[in-house]
Structures are given as C-alpha cells and as structure tokens.
Design a binder for these strands. Sequence first.
RNA 1: GCGCCCAUAGCCCAAUUGGAUAGAGCAACGGACUACGAAUCCGUAGGCUAGAGGUUCGAGUCCUCUUGGGCGCACCA
Length: 543
Amino acid sequence: MIQDYLKSEILKALEKAGTPADPALVGFERPKQAAHGDWSTNIAMALAKQRKGNPRQLAEAIVAGMELDPDLVEKTEIAGPGFINFHLSQNWLYKELENLLASGSTYGNSQIGNGKKAQVEFVSSNPTGPLTVGHGRQAAIGDALARLLSSCGYAVTREYYFNDAGLQMKKLAMSVFLRYRELLGNKVDFPEDHYQGEYIRDIAAQCRSRKGDGLTEADSEFFKQAAIAVIFEEIKRTLARMGIAFDVFYNESSLYADGAIERTKQALAAQGLTYQQDGALWFKATQFGAEKDRVLVRSSGEPTYRLPDIAYHATKFDRGFDLVLDVFGSDHQATYPDVLAALGALGYDASRVEVKIHQFVTLLRGGEQVKMSTRKANYVTLDELIDEVGADAARYFFLMRRMESHLDFDLDLATKQSDENPVYYVQYAHARIRSILAHAAEKGVARARGELALLKEPEEVALIKALLEFPELVQGAAAAREPHRIPTYLQELAGIFHAFYHKHRVVTEDAKLSNARLDLCDAARTVVANGLNLLGVSAPEKM
RNA sequence: GCGCCCAUAGCCCAAUUGGAUAGAGCAACGGACUACGAAUCCGUAGGCUAGAGGUUCGAGUCCUCUUGGGCGCACCA
C-alpha cells in the first residue's frame, strides 16, 4: 500500500537527519479537505512533542530528506502546525483502479487476520419463544462482524449457544403442560412468570395430537423436548430468511454430559475462588472488583447461568480460538464481568474475548413508538418485521447505526421505495450501473480495457478516490468491530457515483472514453456489491 | 445508592479513534428529464457538539463534576 511506501521514506529521512524514530509512531490519515492532499501525517508534531522540538522545522527536515517517486507523489507540503500533506499523482490512481478491476469480487479482502481462528457468538437466544426485533439487530451485527473478519483473512466460526438445562427450560415445559391441561378442559392457574405466548398453546396441541390425553406433569421432559424442537425450527427458519446460518449450535446440557461443569467448579475451588454459604456455592467476585460475591450453585443444587457460562467459555479456548467476539444486548451487560474474571483466574487469556454490547431497538410507526413487552408476548417478532420490510431493509437498518447507540427503526421509512430510504439509494446505484452496462452492450460498444488515464474530470477523479478507500475502510471496520462504517461509506459512495452519472454521459460516440467510463462504472459496481455483501444485503440487477 | 451506554442542525445520524473550516440524509425553500433508470442530481438555509471546569500545539472525541435519557445491579438468562 502507498502508506507503507510513504512511511518507509519518512523513516529514511528521519534517519538521514540523525533522528531515527519508532516506526509505530508514523501514522497516516485522510484529510477531510481535498486541499490538504490525499494523505497526511502528524509525525512531525508527535516527535516534536516527544523531543520538545519545533514541529515545522522537523517537518521541513523530513520533506527535504525524502526521495519520493514523482510518478506516484505529485507534491508534498507542510501545513498548519506541522502536518505533512501528500498529493498523489493521477498515475497512481489509475494503477490502483487497474488493480481494483483485476480483483473484482475479492477487492477489499485482506490477510491481516493471518488465518487466525475467530469465533463470533451471537443471538444465543434460548429456545423459549420466537426471535424478537432485538435479536434481529444482534443477528445482523454478529453476521456482519463474521463477514468482516472473514474478508480480512480470519477463519471464522459462527456460534449459537443456548440453555437447554436449567430453570427457564423447566418453566417452558411447565408452560406447555399447563396449556395442555387447559386443552383437556381443566381450569389452570397460569403463573405470571411463565411463557404467555400463543405459540405455547400450539405446541401443547401438538403434544396432545402426538401422545393423546394421558400425559402428566411427570412427562415434563417430553414437553420440554417438544417445545425446544418446535421453537428451534422456527428460530432457524427466521435466521435463514435473514440469510444467516450458524456453524455451531452449542447446547448447555452437553457441558453437563461431558463433565465440563464439574471440572470448572473444581478448578475454581482449587484456585480458592469459591466458598460455601447458606447452602450455596459462591464465587468470590469481589476479588475482581464486583460489588458482591455471586452464586455459582444454588442451595437447591442447581447451578446459576454463571457456572455453565464459565465452562462454556473455557471450551472456546480449548477449541483453539484466537479471538472470541461475544455479541450481547445491553440487558446482558451484567453477565460477563464475572465470567471473564473467572476465565482469567483459570489461567486463560481473557483479553482474547471481546464483549460487544449493542443497545436496544425502538420501532416507530407513524412517528409513534411501537410498544414491546416480552412478558405479555405482544412484541413484534423478527419474522413479522421481515414480512413487513423485507430482509434487505431489515439488515441494512440494523447495521446503519453504531451498536452503542439506540436504534430507532422507522417502519414507514424502511418500506418506502423512495429516495428517503437509504437501502434503496445504495441498491439503486448498483442496479443503475447494471443497466448502463447492458445499454452499452445493446449499443454494440466493443468492450476493451479502456485507457483509464482518460478519466480526468473532477467527478471521475473523486469517484476513483472514493473507490480506492474501500480496502482500508473494510480493514478499519473489522479492526474496530464497527460494521456501521460500511453503510455510511456506501451511502457516500453511491452519492458520488450518482453525481458523476448526472454530470457525464458514459456511452458516447467516443469509443475510447466510453470504455474508460464503463470501466469506472464496473469498478463502482464492484465496490458497491462487495460492500453490500459484507452486510448480507443483496445487490440487485434490477429494481 | 452503584455500574455500563448515550446526548452533535427542526428530525434521524456520521465524523478516519486527539487533527486543520464538524458532515450526509430527511423535513423546508429554489432549480434540472424529447439521450445510458428522476428510486436520481444541483443549489439555498440550518450548529456555543446538553452545561461547567480541566489536560495540550490542537478536544465532538480524553479526565472530573452537573443535568437529562436507556439498560443493568437475583440462589432469572
């Protein structure tokens, strides 16, 4: 990359001046203003601060010492308090554009992940009911992170963890049982904290048609398994509609079956991190800064979620993942500090686990908030949302915002087929380019690699520059775990393309120029398609 | 009471992780289709970055406090 070249020249110049510097200090950024060039470095200011020198003088020494290839760098200048700005030559642009065209659907991919094993755990909703809109955001974020990491050369596993042991499952089985009793004409007292949804009645009816009227409370395992099977099928179907498939579904009960729970308990005890009190087994969370200690095993003998979670995360290390991303909703924010602390205490490198917490989704219809309550089961399910706005719009909207910001999901906007809708805006650019390429073929334009140097108009140069930002954008989004950068970029890119399109005609009598512009269109189409692909959003040929 | 996240244009949000004159979209106003898709484009207007201090060459971004909002603080997950 060009930055590496500039960096090496800067380091050489510093050495020549008798003041060698740490290469890690030399960073580049793209100036906001075109007048400040294509790349800028603040190295002179950073070094001057360290050495109490004059930044402008240092910058002058650096510029004087560099031997830049004029074919790549048109000019270098010092500005402001000591920025060094580089203006790249147009030749460099054309070379990079060639490279883009040659790379095609792999443009933007990199190997910075170096084949490291990464796991992204997300959704992980217990099979007690349909996925909600909140899960939808998490599904979109998790899958986009997985796609970003893959494109950067990580070997990625998408994993879904679910609790099929424990209290919630008992409640689920009991909920089905009670509805079953109701179906048989019994009057039942349905507890407030059990699962209220209508789907429980459906499952109860299925149980009845399969096994008749003679089931009792003792058949709770049957009710449980029946419920899990039905609900999971539904969850997977919903995820499939979103275009999401998991590599691994990891269930809690396997941790009991293979002894991992017991081993973890003993390992924690061996570290002196647990103690008995009031009939329960406690974890000394206060040793890790928590306000109070936490229960690992209830006095009833049943573990809380904490112990299986620790055991589960231990398997992530045992399975050899170099990087683990856990994507959670903000309501789970309290669940991970103990888990990470325990992992550290067990000798694992807890810094490999990154917990990404996303904020909630608010649905808006007609400017009004749509009330959602899981308890009352009157929430909008993810399926209903996809029915209404489609998978593309759903995914795009979920990914548009930084995950730490609350998401206002405007249902009216997502369904609008107009310029107000950002999904259509970006997809339209793709469809439009397809149509231009088809038009050129109809006109009988003989396609050949054009002379890219003919692309000299300001709108053309601006478009090329925007396209060439894509690879570093992808790497930055992956490194920062911030998928929202992709939609932000795509919207800007689509705007630059549309502006170019309006100003300049692509297919003209001038065959050479037409070919160069068709190449540019093709490059733009490639980047839009690659970007949408990272989001899991389709790049339509027609709309 | 304690912890995590958030506050930027009328609305919804960006801002290259501490950079130079804070930017898009929507809404408002004014323009552009007898040629490649008007689901588009061009222009105008809109800001004391919630408030107060601090750190430094430089702060929307980092630190402290205040105000306002979301989410947590179980022998639920």
